[in-house]
Design a protein around this nucleic acid. Sequence first.
DNA 1: AGTTTGAGTGTACGTTTGTACACCCAAACT
DNA 2: AGTTTGGGTGTACAAACGTACACTCAAACT
Lengths: 205, 205
Amino acid sequence: MTETRGERKERTRRAILDAALALGEDTSLAALSLRQVAKEVGIVPTGFYRHFDSIEALGLALVDEAFGSLRAMLRDVRRGDPAFGDIVDGSIAILVDHVHQQRAHFLFIARERNAGPPAVRAAIRHGIELFEHELATDLARLPGTTTWSAEDLRILSNLIVTAMVGTAEAILSAGPKAEAQVTASARRQLRMVLVGALNWQSDRA
Amino acid sequence: MTETRGERKERTRRAILDAALALGEDTSLAALSLRQVAKEVGIVPTGFYRHFDSIEALGLALVDEAFGSLRAMLRDVRRGDPAFGDIVDGSIAILVDHVHQQRAHFLFIARERNAGPPAVRAAIRHGIELFEHELATDLARLPGTTTWSAEDLRILSNLIVTAMVGTAEAILSAGPKAEAQVTASARRQLRMVLVGALNWQSDRA
DNA sequence: AGTTTGAGTGTACGTTTGTACACCCAAACT
DNA sequence: AGTTTGGGTGTACAAACGTACACTCAAACT
């Protein structure tokens, strides 16, 4: 056996996380039983406790992991994929791509954001707030926003994040055929929001 | 006993619906057991079946009821409360009011929209689509939208509904002190969206 | 007055749940 | 080489689960 002790533990831990994501496709975390997860992983029920104190702790670990995916997405957007000239088209394309690549993570967040144990809900809400904050600093670097207050930037990025979360949820619950329409709508909506924000702001001069 | 047979049945049915809404504040529908509901109502577990075939059927009944609340809200917005001159301020005020008045219904929809049994999810999604459609016909009566296509109206109303759902969820998970900030943001965001939609549209002439 | 109906009861069952406790045994440490 | 550590096992149990079945008894119908 070429596998060290820590490696084996980490491998089982990953299996538990993956099993929870897989089983969660049908039901929410709150309806997920420790024994179901253990059976899916292939360990005995009590073995679960070697890795997590409770299902809730498992949920918190999944929140961390899922927001890792989101940060990676924002990094891609920030880098600005040269394959797309337009910021809007590029950002939506990256969003769509990440939703497919990390489908389980997006499903998890969409589900547990409003259902799920209170601590998990709080962690997700906090993560989204951080995400909005990061987006706000990105928006501040955009031309035309130099005079904006921090509050204005926060409100705008909250609107954008809300719209993008809505888009992600729409993609997740849409067939492949309906998806083209969803992304087309998302592009138009994001453009509307940006145009509106700039014009509304210039009115206040 | 001055109570007829049908009245008594309806009263128990209401008690079951209310119990499900009350118990749902903590956990999602999928995690709700028939026995918990029965105990909360004060009937024996098997008595539940006299009213619903399953927890899922209960959920579908709650979806109907909750969307009744939403339609009532839209009716109020349409009437245009004369206490508020501005459409935006008035609409947001009505939304905030209804979220407080029908808190349990909004919580239910927010929770079960992405968690909850597939049939319940589908029913909620369908209800929201109807809601967007109704809003679109209202928007069509607004000045400046005469040249809009049905598709454009649908996209705009989808954006507005998404933003309003986000606002409702923010209100539900905000303390009384944070609420003023939430509603202020919501007003600004709705104004941004409307300004953006009109300006973006006029660009295409 | 006699009969039917149906909301609610009570018992009973096999399953599944979370968790306690004693155990094993190979990797890691001394 | 000897000891410790800890991931995973196996058994065990009380509690809660969904649901089947036979019951009651007052309202509703004839």
